[in-house]
Simulated scan of single mutants.
Amino acid sequence: MIVFDLSCAHGHRFEGWFGSSGEYADQVAEGLIACPQCGSVDIGKAPMAPAVGRKGNQQAAAPRSHDGDAVSGGAMPAEVAKALDALAKVQAKALETSEYVGDRFAEESRAIHYGEREAATIHGKATEKERRELVEEGITVAPLLAPFVPPDEVN
């Protein structure tokens, strides 16, 4: 996985996880990445500090916040790691009983909502425009919170 610092046209910064730089470029082009604060799909990579290794005989002190706790770049607090692990496990369990519909997510969601298809729990891909349209139609959608590799992209 590659982690990029991203920002929207309004200056909000957030992090995105991608399988490759090409995957990032594809998702931006399709409008699949939206700012979690304002919903803007005008997204770009934010400047990042390069990861430069230290000499073998040097050890870096973890950066500290104003109250002395380790922050970004330091060790992840055990509570955060535990919470993220639990979230990933809950999501994986939920996806076991959910049908992956890929790019047909918007179409399948509408079919279920309007009774044209049997009710089912589904997950898949939708552009930001499709997501907005579904919400405007009263169709409940929610993003996956942990990184997910679609079944058709698994090695």
Rank of each mutant, 00 (worst) to 15 (best):
A119T: 02
G53Y: 13
A81Q: 15
C35D: 05
W17L: 09
V90Y: 09
K93I: 09
P63A: 05
F105C: 01
A83F: 06
V90L: 13
P143Y: 05
E107W: 08
E137I: 00
N57K: 05
Y100I: 02
S72F: 13
E15T: 15
E99I: 15
E118W: 03
I122C: 09
A46N: 02
P63W: 07
G44I: 06
K89G: 04
G19N: 13
A88M: 11
S20E: 09
R104D: 15
D67Q: 11
S40P: 03
L134M: 12
G138F: 03
F148L: 08
N155T: 08
H10I: 00
V101S: 06
P147W: 15
A126W: 06
L145V: 13
S109G: 07
A126F: 08
K82H: 13
R64F: 05
P147F: 15
S21I: 03
A51D: 07
S72Y: 10
A78W: 10
E96P: 01
A9F: 04
E130Y: 04
P150N: 03
E133R: 09
P77N: 09
R104T: 09
S65W: 09
P147C: 13
L6P: 00
H10T: 03
T97P: 00
M76F: 05
K55G: 11
G39K: 07
G39A: 07
R117G: 02
R110P: 00
A62M: 10
C38A: 08
V28A: 12
A75V: 15
C35I: 06
A106N: 01
V28M: 10
I2N: 08
E153T: 09
A78H: 09
F105P: 00
E137N: 00
A61V: 06
E128H: 07
E96G: 04
P63H: 06
E118F: 05
T127I: 02
E15M: 14
E79Y: 07
G102N: 03
D85L: 10
A75D: 15
V71N: 05
R131I: 02
A142S: 12
L134T: 04
E15D: 13
D69V: 03
R54D: 11
F18K: 03
P150Q: 04
L144V: 08
G22T: 11
A60P: 02
E99F: 12
L144P: 03
N57A: 04
E99D: 14
